[in-house]
Simulated assay, not measured.
Amino acid sequence: MAQGPRFDTVVPPHGYAWWYLDATSADGRYGLTVIAFVGSVFSPYYKLVGRQRPDNHCAINIAINGPRARAWAMTERGQRAVNRGPDHFHVGPSSVEWDGECLTIAVDERSAPLPYRVRGRIRLWPDLIATTGFALDGEARHRWHPIAPRARVEVAMDHPDADWTGSGYLDSNFGDEPLENGFRDWHWSRTHLSRDVAVLYEGMRRDGRPFGLAMLCDRQGRWREADAPPPHRLGRTGWAIDRRTRADRDSRPRVARTWIDAPFYARSGIDTRLFGERCFAVHETLSLDRFASPVVQSMLPYRMPRAIL
C-alpha cells in the first residue's frame, strides 16, 4: 500500500496541522469524528499567547453520536505531554498510530464541561490511499491532503458503550497562518458514491474572493476535477449559521441529522443527489467570522479545557 499518514510534519509558528477521521455505522444510527491537532486552530490558549509554539497546543478531539451513546472530549495539552513521530502522535493518555495497514486511535479523555469518561479504541483500514495534495488558496498557505477517502472502520468504546463497524474517511489539513486569516467561512462535504468518492469544498476567503473545489477520487486513489453541481441552501443550524452545499439540479438535499451544533461550526449528515446518484454525505459548515468574535472566544474554554501538565 502507498504511504499513509505521517505525523512528524513541521508546523511553523502561527500554523496548524490536523488529521481528521469521520465514520458512520453500517446501520446509519451512529456517527463519529476524531481530529488530532497540532497548533489547535480553535484553541483560545494558542491564540492568547500569539501562536508561537504550535507543538505546545495539541489535542485529540473525539465526538460520538448515536442512540444512548453521545460523547465529546477535547482537552488541549502542552509539549511535555506530546510525542510525535512519522507513524505516531501521542497527546497525554490518547494516541494515534499507523502500522502501515491500519490506523489505531486509543482514546482516554474526559469531556467538558461535564467531566464524564470517554474511552475506547477506533481502527481504520483504508480501502485506498490517495497521495495528491491541494491548495485551498492562491499562495498555498492552507492545504488539504486526503489520505484514505474510503475506508473500513471498527469502533469499540467502553465509555460510552458503543461497538459498531461502518465506513469512514481520513484526511489532513496544514496551514502556515491562522485559519481565520485565510477564510471567512467554508462548507465541505465528502460522499461515498458507488464508484468514486466526491469531495466538495467552497467558501469565502478573507479577502472576499470565493473559492471552490469539486473533486472525484476513483478506486485507485486518483483524483480528478469535476464540474461543481449547482448550489443549494440547507436549513440553518441551531446557532443560526447558514449551511450550503452542492447537489444535482432539481434535487432537494436535506439535513438528515446534525451531529455537532456549535456557535461557529456544524457537522451534519445530509441526504442528497450527486453526479446522478442518491447518496448520504457528511457535511460541515464553519463560520470563522463567528469563531473570531469575543463572545465565542469567551465560551471556548468551557468546552476545550487545557490540562495543567
Rank of each mutant, 00 (worst) to 15 (best):
Q3E: 12
P5L: 12
F7G: 00
Y20G: 00
A26I: 07
D27A: 11
R29E: 11
V34F: 03
V38F: 00
G39M: 03
S40G: 04
Y46E: 03
L48K: 14
N56M: 06
A59L: 05
N61H: 11
A63N: 05
N65H: 11
R70T: 11
E76M: 03
R77D: 00
A81C: 11
G85V: 06
L103W: 09
A106S: 14
D108Y: 04
R119I: 10
G120H: 00
R123T: 15
P126I: 04
T131M: 09
D137H: 04
D137E: 07
R143V: 14
A156E: 15
G175Y: 01
D176Y: 01
E177G: 04
E180D: 07
V197N: 00
E202L: 12
M204T: 15
D207K: 14
G208E: 12
G208V: 14
C217W: 05
C217V: 12
D218N: 15
R222C: 13
A226H: 08
T245C: 15
R246N: 07
V255G: 03
R257V: 13
T258V: 14
Y265F: 13
A266V: 10
C279S: 15
F280H: 09
V282H: 04
L286M: 15
R290F: 07
M299R: 05
P301A: 06
